[in-house]
């Protein structure tokens, strides 16, 4: 099957039981989606599939045939980070950083629809992702900051 990952066209031959996160990590070597639960709970396997923010551990790989997948790695660069990346970095919104794929992509998705979210909307938008290090205070601050920077 073919798919497009972070702009590159790739061809792979997944097992019928493979989920999209397996393919992205094991076949394509991505470090920008990770596995924390394989149960849809933690969000660290999050990617945008055809523009939709999804947890890739819940998607059978074959379902993504022909899809355009964007991971955290596609957002920005160190010298030109995406405003949400910049905000997470500036606010020290993470410690170990393991949860960032879901945190950042959820924030990006929120701001695309809701440019000036309330705190409740921010917390709701981040709620698909678990972070065990931080208590979310700085992540909420970071999303506020990214919203203000737009």
């Amino acid at each position: 099957m073919r798919l497009q990952v972070d702009g590159a066209h790739v061809q792979i031959d997944p097992d019928p039981e493979d989920t999209l996160v397996d393919v992205l990590r094991d076949e394509l070597g991505s470090t920008a989606v990770r596995v924390g639960c394989r149960n849809g709970d933690c969000g660290t396997c999050t990617a945008l599939v055809d523009g939709q923010c999804v947890k890739t551990c819940l998607v059978l790989a074959g379902r993504a045939e022909g899809a355009r997948v964007e991971t955290l790695a596609s957002l920005g660069t160190e010298t030109n980070p995406h405003p949400v990346q910049e905000a997470f970095l500036a606010e020290y919104a993470f410690q170990c950083g393991f949860c960032l794929p879901g945190m950042i992509l959820s924030a990006v998705t929120l701001l695309a629809d809701t440019p000036s979210p309330s705190d409740a909307e921010i917390r709701n938008a981040l709620s698909g992702n678990l972070c065990r290090c931080t208590g979310y205070v700085n992540a909420v601050r970071a999303v506020r900051r990214a919203a203000a920077a737009r």
């Binding site: 991505s30 470090t31 920008a32 989606v33 991971t71 955290l72 790695a73 957002l75 920005g76 660069t77 160190e78 980070p81 990346q85 997470f88 970095l89 500036a90 020290y92 993470f94 950083g97 960032l100 794929p101 950042i104």
Partner: peptide, 15 residues
């Protein structure tokens, strides 16, 4: 300006 070291590795998904 970023408090964390090698910060972009984490926010960019290469860590």
């Amino acid at each position: 300006r970023w408090p964390k070291r090698n910060a972009f590795e984490f926010a960019g998904g290469t860590a």
